[in-house]
Design a protein around this nucleic acid. Structure first.
Lengths: 344, 344
DNA sequence: AAGCATAATGAACGCGTGTACATTATTTTT
DNA sequence: AAAAATAATGTACACGCGTTCATTATGCTT
């Protein structure tokens, strides 16, 4: 890789001007077939590869889509089914495009400044994962929005702001989950939610209450718990929930990791899923089918959400989008053995 | 984001030349304190952000480190503890540097050409994950190596080639695992390996045989199975292995996913881990502690491997590395309940 | 065959930065 | 105080490409 082949080399070999080389390679303007062949042949002979940076510089675009991954203390965000699936989806779509995927790990405890990424021209657009309802997060997004920068938020809905978002029907999903339990004959259903920083959580909570009420069941204040979407929080809550088990039929957890934490925690205390209580998780992550009994869960099309997010960002960069994007994908209930408790 | 602030704007406001602005911001050459302050103030006032692309262009470097993620049909590679942990480690280290992380998903079935990424100046160096022993993979790496391009291979060792590699002590890890089983009194130990495309697999296999022989046990040809590191392959192999269970004490699986597949498959056939046979996995992924019984596993410092890979690539780009890198990190055995079978 | 429209190509420049070299201001040396 | 050394700043250009504008070749009309 001593001296890279550049456009001028190709031009010289082909016996044409640099402009012609550029035109041939970019397919612009009318070109005589013969010239075209000469150029292509020369480019091939020299194994010419346009300098991406120079192209970007000349075009005034980076050709990169930034994907912002949040960071939480002690957790490797990517090692979470949720994020990795979305990221895979994004990668799949971008792989089919000419854009590159710039992975940006949001440093913890630092004020978020996505605008800088645009100002420095590092990215042309960005996809934001794991945004919270915090003021600081919202401000960062508002800042982007005010500058009319192309970005899209995945799996987080902001009611008060017209951001472009891709989300899933978490209200419906949770409603389905709880209704499913009710239809199975369970009536005493606890709810273990994740952090309220995410709109997902609020939606799930609302649906939980509504589904119960619809069935004529009054939600019980002390049957509602709050974890942080981690397995350990599920284990912790298991201890609080255990004394209530005699009265409880079922538990609805806001994600699979917490559900598994509950399973494990309660199991240690002598309560078995599918026997002493039913359990339903959320996300339908890979682990749902690995535990015993397998976990009934609400399947969220995370991969597709990533794909669509990438798709939409590309469209935005092509100015093919005029209206606000607010896509919500449907979710489905994946039945497994964790809800098989016999009603007594 | 109408018109971006550029160096000339800062120079004008500060009343100095552009070169001086550049010098102040890059900390080169002697600068009068007063001038420095003027420039910094002007830059701040205008909220100046250097154009990253222009910088890269001028410097002749992209400032990107490419991370190559392989793709296999039907699997989202990232959603695998293995890859996501390594990637997180890489991200952590790069986040502390000035390099950006360009995530490159290797399209399936396409001839690999990493050189192109360098020729187009998209990346300055790269970290390759999931490389195989296939000719095509090796050729791609040899090509890189011949051109003296900075790259490092993670978790794959090539004996015949002087590539830079970061790996873990998989021979020792497997030896430990098998010896552990033997020390616990198990003597009839089956081995379920993953694809032979990976050096990891060969190492594990060799250690399995050696550990047995060391204990005076002759490895049995028909107690050796081959999966592909997926859970479904574990489930499939469970059917083959079931008839042997009466004679078998224990199974050593080359990764956790297959181990869990075995657990599930054998469980369906009536054989319980920790009762009818002992089971030990590999990777110590998050799922190991989620299953029941929890899976004893060999813990591989994937996150650290990623961190070190990034560290080394940065050093290579700084020309701080002269000798071949061939790091192998130690692994440890993580004991859990899956090896508690009572010897009869 | 002259005139004109259009196709095909070349020449020249800008993109925003880093930096080598030239120039001027300041300090040190004698 | 003059000369020399050094600090501080400015000028000019390169980096490799896309692209506008100018120019030349070709084909078509009358």
């Amino acid at each position: 890789m001593n001296t890279l082949v550049k456009r001028s080399d190709v031009a010289k070999l082909a016996g044409v001007s640099e402009a012609t080389v550029s035109r041939v390679l970019n397919n612009v303007g009318p070109i005589r077939e013969e010239t075209k062949n000469k150029v292509l042949q020369a480019a091939k002979a020299l194994n010419y590869q346009p300098n991406s940076i120079a192209q970007c510089f000349a075009r005034g675009k980076s050709g990169n889509i930034g994907v912002i991954v949040p960071s939480f203390p002690k957790v490797h965000m990517l090692s979470t089914y949720y994020f990795s699936e979305i990221l895979s989806g994004i990668g799949r779509r971008l792989g089919e495009s000419n854009y590159s995927l710039l992975l940006v790990f949001q440093p913890p405890d630092q004020p978020k400044n996505y605008v800088q990424l645009f100002q420095s021209q590092k990215i042309d657009g960005c996809i934001i994962l794991g945004a919270k309802n915090h003021e600081s997060d919202k401000e960062a997004l508002i800042h982007l929005h005010h500058l009319d920068l192309p970005f899209i938020v995945v799996n987080q809905t902001y009611l008060d702001y017209p951001f472009h978002t891709i989300d899933a029907e978490h209200y419906e999903g949770s409603y389905k989950a709880v209704s499913y339990l009710i239809n199975k004959g369970f009536r005493n259903i606890a709810f273990v939610n994740g952090s309220n920083d995410f709109s997902n959580s609020s939606e799930r909570f609302a649906a939980y209450k509504d589904a119960l009420k619809k069935a004529g069941i009054e939600p019980m204040e002390n049957w509602i718990f709050q974890g942080n979407y981690s397995r350990s929080s599920g284990i912790k809550i298991a201890k609080e929930i255990a004394p209530l088990i005699p009265q409880l039929d079922a538990i609805f957890a806001a994600n699979d990791r917490m559900a598994i934490g509950l399973m494990q925690g309660l199991s240690e205390l002598g309560y078995k899923v599918g026997k002493d209580f039913a359990l339903i998780g959320y996300d339908d992550s890979d682990i749902a089918s690995m535990v015993n009994p397998p976990l009934t869960s609400v399947k969220v099309p995370l991969f597709d959400m990533g794909k669509i997010a990438a798709e939409k960002i590309i469209q935005m960069l092509n100015h093919e989008i005029t209206e606000q994007i607010h896509i919500r994908l449907p979710v489905t209930l994946k039945e497994r053995a964790s809800c098989c408790k016999q009603i007594t």
